[in-house]
């Protein structure tokens, strides 16, 4: 396989006396979907915030495209090609789909030397991209609030890919979705990966991870428990690692293997 496009080594993050991350390592290749699994409180959110430039690591090294990198804020990370889609903060419901799609990347055209928002271009591209994703809009000025949760995630992922993200970090994109919506989002992730984007897929749902993941890294109590490739590990083993093993096995026994 090629060189990893982004690599994090021994990342530690302390918040005062709390050690949120105690040495996490992860590398993602272009065109790979790398799933980051972990239970609540495992440090997933802190870790992606380090990757996306929201937090600066206390210790450890980030290498992006082979060179050491330190992002001061999210804008720097976005400019470098690292985009993050947050679960609840992907889109702004009151704004139109077109305005959302181009938020922060507004196309401009000059009229008498004054730069204006190029609504024609924005509307055309939005309708085109939505058609490609199978989202039918009444028009580009339809408010995002009328889209379903799955459609919002899909649009946000498509937006990041359209604006040239090399690394796409997805923060629990499927956790609040129904079955059909989840498959749509997973299909979009697959499509984006095939275009050569490195995808980091954060989830605590092993089945969702197994559907699209190439490699799996499990976080527990701020540490990496290990990385496995697809085929080397079963969903059950992943589930056990996430929860820290034995206790869950007992629980699962009493619940008849439904967890």
């Amino acid at each position: 396989m090629s060189e990893p496009i982004i690599e994090l080594r021994g990342i530690e993050k302390h918040f005062g006396p709390v050690i949120a991350l105690a040495g996490v390592s992860l590398g993602v290749h272009p065109g790979e979907c790398h799933c980051l699994l972990g239970d609540n409180g495992a440090g997933k959110s802190t870790f992606i915030k380090v990757m996306s430039g929201v937090h600066q690591p206390t210790k450890g090294e980030i290498r992006f495209e082979g060179a050491p990198m330190r992002f001061g804020d999210p804008r720097e990370a976005i400019a470098a090609g690292i985009s993050t889609v947050y679960q609840d903060l992907a889109m702004i419901p009151l704004m139109s789909v077109a305005r959302n799609f181009f938020m922060g990347n507004e196309p401009q055209k000059r009229v008498m030397g004054i730069p204006f928002f190029d609504h024609d271009h924005a509307n055309r591209v939005t309708m085109q991209e939505m058609a490609r994703l199978g989202i039918r809009l009444r028009g580009p000025d339809q408010a995002v609030g009328t889209l379903s949760g799955g459609e919002r995630q899909t649009v946000a992922i498509a937006r990041a890919a359209y604006f040239g993200a090399k690394v796409l970090i997805l923060d629990e994109p499927t956790s609040a979705l129904g079955v059909r919506q989840t498959s749509n989002v997973l299909a979009t992730i697959d499509a984006v990966r095939k275009r050569g984007v490195a995808v980091v897929f954060i989830t605590h749902n092993v089945r969702h991870a197994h559907a699209v993941g190439d490699r799996f890294t499990v976080l527990n109590r701020g540490k990496t428990l290990g990385t496995a490739s697809r085929g080397e590990i079963t969903p059950e083993q992943l589930q056990d690692m996430m929860a820290g093993g034995e206790e869950l096995a007992e629980l699962e026994g009493s619940l008849g293997g439904t967890v």
Partner: peptide, 8 residues
């Protein structure tokens, strides 16, 4: 917050 994440 969503706007900040989008680079606004």
């Amino acid at each position: 917050q969503a706007a900040r994440y989008a680079g606004v």
